[in-house]
Amino acid sequence: MSFQNAVLGLVIERPGYGYELAQRINGRVTGLAVSGTAVYPALVALETKGWVRRRDPTARTGRGRIVFDPTHEGREGFDAWMDHPSPPLRGDLRWKITVATFEKLPALIEQTREEEQACLDRIELLTSDAGGPLDPLAAWAPTGRLLLQRTDVKELQMKIEALQEVRATMKQALRQRSPRG
């Protein structure tokens, strides 16, 4: 879902063909090596939904490349995805950040909040059954359990910290654009 929407976002940004779209994704997201063939299934699925369409074959460039353009429905679908929170703690926000435009920042800021809330929900869930003081000598099992819990929430901490940074940067960018704060 999210990858599809990210590809849609790129098409809306500027119409393109499969390989070129893959190059653009790789230019923005590090650590992923998206091949041209990986983009096609997403484009096909989007075309099936009627969110993108192949450009008129008469306008072919001569090298057999098929360029995709966004449809009106596609634009509406993309806006709906960007403006509304996706289910929390999944990769959606990541892709949204990748293809965001300045106008989308307020919505994204709100979504980082919701994402952070979801993290806190999980932490609070884990807190409910905290036991007595940690005493490795008395029994290892509760100690091990607590250590694992700590490790798990440490991952959430990283996520929270990352979200906070993203939000702070976005807020700052908005503030700089409209200096009255």
Partner: peptide, 18 residues
């Protein structure tokens, strides 16, 4: 540190004034 919140009843986070 988030792990230090595990004994609390309520957790909150504060950043950039929020």
């Amino acid at each position: 540190d988030v792990p230090d919140m595990l004994r609390s009843h309520t957790v909150m986070s504060l950043s950039d004034g929020e």
